Amino acid sequence: MAAESGAQVVICDKNELGGQALEQELPGTVFLRCDVTQEEDVRALLSETVRCFGRLDCVVNNAGYHPPPQRPEETSAQDFRQLLELNLLGTYTLTKLALPHLRRSRGNVINISSLVGAIGQSQAVPYVATKGAVTAMTKALALDESQYGVRVNCISPGNIWTPLWEELAALTPNPMATVREGTLAQPLGRMGQPADVGAAAVFLASEANFCTGIELLVTGGAELGYGCKAHGSTPVEAPQIPS
């Protein structure tokens, strides 16, 4: 979306083949290999970006992963640390190292968080914790960077149909039922597309000049209204109805 709007876009990925394929798919983009959990990779990414284009106006922190469903007792501290390295510390490191450039350009940061960081998600304690931290960090950074004219916002998507969503659905006993459940979670009656998130990022980067520290929900309304939350094994106390 950003490239289509005329921006000069650098994309990064630690998967070189995937990144090169995306570069071919999106005209006007430049691919640079980078593992955001490695600080030296991040330094090189920023240095090469500024060398190529002379400035840096916006950083979108989109690297992240959602593990398969796990009950709390099935998680490990080591797996949690690795997820923190990617979902939270990768965002922190890239932002921290980009700030000198963004202060010069009075640019902005867009962090990709998640709706579940605010409302929770079953069998996803580490993931929810990392995304809740991204949203909180966004607000703290917005306060610190406002004195330099740098805006910091985040996008919290809901169900967005991506290869990862499809991969996780395939691990469930009935993938088609899982996809249908995910689709029906939105009052709009569909899952979002990556382009929906991209359009929100373009808006925050180029039009939302009086917005900082906000969490923009791109969810199709999934957080609205009431729904059935208790499981069959959950003790339920029904109110007594007078006869």
Rank of each mutant, 00 (worst) to 15 (best):
Val9Phe: 08
Val10Glu: 00
Asn15Tyr: 05
Asn15Phe: 02
Glu16Ala: 09
Leu17Val: 14
Leu17His: 15
Ala21Met: 11
Glu23Phe: 06
Gln24His: 07
Glu25Leu: 15
Gly28Met: 11
Arg33Ser: 14
Asp35Met: 11
Thr37His: 02
Gln38Trp: 02
Glu40Ser: 14
Glu40Arg: 15
Asp41Val: 02
Arg43Tyr: 02
Ala44Glu: 14
Val50Trp: 10
Arg51Cys: 03
Arg55Tyr: 03
Val59Asp: 03
Val60Tyr: 04
Asn61Asp: 08
Asn62Ser: 14
Pro67Ser: 06
Pro69Glu: 07
Ala77Cys: 06
Asp79Pro: 00
Leu83Tyr: 00
Asn87Pro: 10
Gly90Cys: 01
Thr91Asn: 05
Tyr92Gln: 10
Tyr92Asp: 09
Tyr92Met: 08
Thr95Gln: 07
Leu97Gly: 04
Leu99Thr: 14
Leu99Cys: 12
His101Lys: 04
Arg103Ala: 14
Arg103Trp: 10
Asn108Val: 10
Ser114His: 03
Val116Glu: 12
Val116Gly: 06
Val116Arg: 07
Ala118Val: 06
Gln121Met: 10
Ala124Gln: 13
Tyr127Ile: 14
Val128Asp: 15
Ala129Cys: 08
Lys131Leu: 08
Gly132Phe: 00
Thr135Lys: 11
Leu141Ile: 09
Asp144Pro: 02
Asp144Gly: 07
Glu145Gln: 15
Gln147Val: 15
Val152Asp: 10
Asn153Ile: 12
Ile155Val: 14
Ile155Thr: 02
Ile160Gly: 07
Ile160Ser: 06
Pro163Lys: 09
Trp165Ala: 09
Thr172Asp: 02
Met176Arg: 15
Met176Ser: 15
Ala177Glu: 15
Thr178His: 03
Val179Phe: 11
Ala185Gly: 01
Gln186Ile: 02
Gln186Trp: 01
Gly189Arg: 05
Arg190Thr: 08
Met191Trp: 00
Ala195Glu: 15
Val197Asp: 00
Ala199Phe: 10
Phe203Arg: 10
Phe203Gly: 07
Ala205Asp: 03
Ser206Cys: 06
Ser206Gly: 12
Phe210Ser: 10
Phe210Tyr: 15
Gly213Arg: 05
Glu215Leu: 04
Glu215Asp: 13
Glu215Ser: 11
Val218Asp: 05
Gly221Ile: 12
Gly221Leu: 13
Ala222Met: 13
Glu223Asp: 05
Leu224Met: 12
Gly225Thr: 08
Lys229Ile: 11
His231Arg: 14
Pro235Gln: 07
Pro239Leu: 13
Pro239Ile: 02
Ser243Pro: 13
